[in-house]
Design a protein around this nucleic acid. Structure first.
Lengths: 351, 351
DNA sequence: GCACACCGTCGAAGCGCTTCGATACGCCTG
DNA sequence: CAGGCGTATCGAAGCGCTTCGACGGTGTGC
């Protein structure tokens, strides 16, 4: 069965090839009757335009690239959510998505751009000092970044507003009456790498804590159970008045709860816990966690929307920050009337 | 800067367009001197062949589709590993990867196939009764499935050998001397959906247990901490002699350990635990878990290799099963001389 | 009733590449 | 030295589509 071409459709409908093209693209007015006849032939023959030919003639491939970061082992589930929402949104704009990893290096981007394989790029999980960014500038291919590099001038960036996410957590705890709160973040290596979002969360948390007159401690957090356990224990010993913990580390969330259980601190009666993580992780915990959701799907959606706007030649904002959303569940409550002095040796001096 | 075409290269090198093409494709013999001259021009001009034109003329797009399953919320991390290994491997064969979700339905597959956007398909996470399979048969587009449908005749399928994974776990425990062992699997809904791998693991586990003269219980397992806790408690009460647990549920692994901690059962002294999960999850637990690794990267690699072979017209085996790998860590040991009767559920002492 | 504009459609010229003969040249053979 | 062969290269014909300019036919203004 030879594949159906536009010429077949034209013949079947008794019109010129160009007429079929115009019916399909809508770039010129075609009478309703002709249009219907053509569409009937399209359906009857099961016509699908050849992508290569279309790309060649129109200089648009209707494909965008989705570029994953090089390093593996990062927030895989969230990346996946990004990816699927990018695909779904792209389809709504009649585009497909080419999946690329950065391990081909800059040449990979150069290649797809120069070969006209794609019309634009979405770069996921951009870091402060991302090697892909300089290349992007030189490439002059329409692009959107998910995340913020150090110098974002002239680039279009989208991300969750992590500072606000941190702030919301601090505010929530402060407004419940907690005076001493802590944030457990990503592993140390993440901060050393200069992954903007981790730092921004900490800063937002610290600042909001300060504004609300609470003592706000923020520190990195490793991901093994034993290390989490030690970290939580140390935290509680060093800060006997501590009554609220924010966890911004998906892998450590469960371990923090386990640690508190081992240490005999009840949640939320003795310690309130807020997580920044996907909803399913929060719901699966015991007790279900008050959490701030990272709207991965929204981010992907916005990224594609912006890219499409750029492809149409429209002007788009340089930076788009998406608001986080707090869901209150059962792991946070007002602190008890008396701070429980479990095993602490030293008494706090400040109130 | 107009994009560089093959004609530019030909002119720059002082040869015919076709000669450049033959140098690049190697489909006809070209003298070493000419070949070098052409290659020098290619580099000097930074030439990249136009993908659309190439596809149009050669009827090969050098792109394969990677089709994700529709339903969300599945084993995201593992899917991601598949995906990256598929991309990496495809690049080694000079192909790119188009990412598709199944939520466009069958029409999506039809579209990419008919439009010649892709040369072949890799379907991820195929289920027993996968709606994509019948379509695939009608499409006659080269394809490889990851996972096994009920009727795999005439299809090329790759997967981890889950039956063997289950069996290895049972054998490991039995050979340590455990006489009564249990498998906690995926949530109930997964079995109802007919997701082959979950059942195959259970079967392999049960059979191997039987062969080694051990009592082997297998049951589904939900993913919230409280449900896991209840399940583990019930299991231990119903089977007082139980001394080994296999967990085939990434989300529940941490919860099972937490439950045992709450129930006061030490791992591995009183209960040995084996997980079927990625290494990082196993390593992060306390104690680090003896585990069977799902070789996601291998599976993706093999899938692409097979697809490429089919594209070259080669014959390939219908079914490819990849062997699982057991890594012994600190969560399994021989059962104690006397199954210790649990003291009740209070905070255990951890040293 | 004539010039003009406009609408709907057509024909043809590419887009940049691959590939199929054809060609030119040197070399071997008889 | 003619004939034949193999090798390296060329020229041209598409691949299936988009798009531009052209062209009848109808409607409008004067």
């Amino acid at each position: 069965m030879r594949t159906v071409t536009i010429a077949d459709v034209a013949k079947h409908a008794g019109v010129a090839v160009s007429t079929v093209s115009y019916v399909l693209s809508g770039k010129r007015a075609i009478s309703a009757t002709t249009s219907q006849r053509v569409m009937r032939s399209v359906r009857a023959l099961g016509y699908h335009p050849n992508a290569g030919a279309r790309a060649l003639a129109s200089k648009r491939s209707n494909v965008i690239a989705l570029v994953l970061p090089l390093r593996a082992g990062m927030h895989l589930p969230v990346l996946m959510q990004f990816a699927t929402s990018v695909v779904t949104t792209a389809r709504q704009f009649d585009h497909d998505v080419l999946l690329m990893t950065a391990d081909e290096g800059p040449d990979g981007l150069r290649r797809v751009a120069a070969s006209a394989l794609v019309d634009g790029l979405v770069l996921m999980d951009v870091e402060i000092h991302d090697p892909r960014v300089p290349l992007l500038r030189e490439l002059e291919e329409p692009s959107v970044l998910i995340g913020f590099p150090a110098d974002a001038s002239g680039l279009t960036c989208v991300d969750l507003d992590f500072a606000q996410a941190g702030a919301i957590c601090a505010e929530h705890l402060a407004s419940l009456g907690h005076r001493e709160i802590a944030l457990l973040g990503a592993p140390n290596v993440v901060y050393q790498r200069g992954t903007g979002y981790a730092e921004r969360t900490m800063e937002g948390f610290a600042e909001a804590g300060r504004e609300h007159g609470a003592t706000a401690i923020a520190r990195p957090c490793e991901e093994s159970f034993d290390e989490v356990c030690a970290a939580v224990k140390a935290l509680l010993e060093e800060h006997p008045g501590l009554s609220g913990i924010v966890v911004h580390n998906e892998a450590a969330v469960g371990h923090v709860l386990g640690a508190l259980r081992v240490l005999g601190r009840r949640v939320p009666e003795e310690v309130s816990v807020v997580a920044i993580c996907p909803d399913d992780v929060a719901e699966r915990a015991s007790p279900p966690l008050t959490s701030v959701l990272i709207p991965a799907a929204d981010v992907g959606h916005q990224a594609v929307r912006l890219l499409m706007a750029k492809l149409e030649g429209g002007a788009v904002p340089d930076a788009t920050l998406l608001p986080p959303r707090l869901t209150i569940r059962q792991s946070t409550t007002a602190p008890g009337p008396v701070p429980p002095l479990a095993n602490s040796a030293t008494a706090p001096t400040k109130g």
